[in-house]
Amino acid sequence: MAAAVASAEDAVLRAILEIADDGLILGHRLSEWCGHAPMLEEELALANMGLDLLGQARALYAHAGALEGKGRTEDDFAFLRRERDYVNCLLVERDNRDFAHTMLRQLYFAAFMQPFWHATVQTSSDETLRGIAAKADKEMSYHLRHSGEWVIRMGDGTEESAARMADAVNELHRYTGELFMVSPARQQAIAAGLLPDPESLRDEWDETIATVFRAAKLELPEIRTMQKGGRDGIHGEDMGHLLAELQFMQRAYPGQTW
């Protein structure tokens, strides 16, 4: 899967899987907070945001399967691929660590995806993608607001919360470059008018992050080399552990349904 893209159809499928995998993996990460959140309200918020992302991923997998026309279902895509076949960006698979890491990761992602879906609604030539995007746009605007508010509260909070947030920035900022990187498959999907060019969304992302960081009294770090690899199926150590849990039921009891 990480090899060269053979045809235009393969490219579209692959490009849709990139954003579907982003949603699935980040949604799963948020679900790991169930029973562990710092307070009840955040327990609900994290589960709700995770559900939004899983819902978006399901719709995208179903669409990918229909486009491919080989009978692969959303479950096949979600549960039965190998690690190298997942093409999510590295940011979304990063370990939850603490609440600061989780909320900053959510902010980085939502600050990109909200304008991404908004642009998809406006410009995509694919009617189903426009439909998925119209819902996701609204959902991600909530995620953006919720996570941004927490980054501000914690960055401009106590000594402890500020230190944790600064630590999260130092750890996670290097993974944000991949949001804007365009794989060969994505390039074809952009050229075909299916998905927006991430480069056109960079100014808005920069401005959102700068606004939040100013209010949070956080410094934007200088990153010389952005981490990459997820879109080629090259994942970090955290990913294997995540997939072991995500895929366990389908691997242990193949074909099981609820």
Binding site: G27, L51, G55, R58, E139
Partner: peptide, 8 residues
């Protein structure tokens, strides 16, 4: 039509 993408 669903309300939210992930509405259970």
């Amino acid at each position: 039509t669903p309300t939210y993408s992930g509405c259970p």
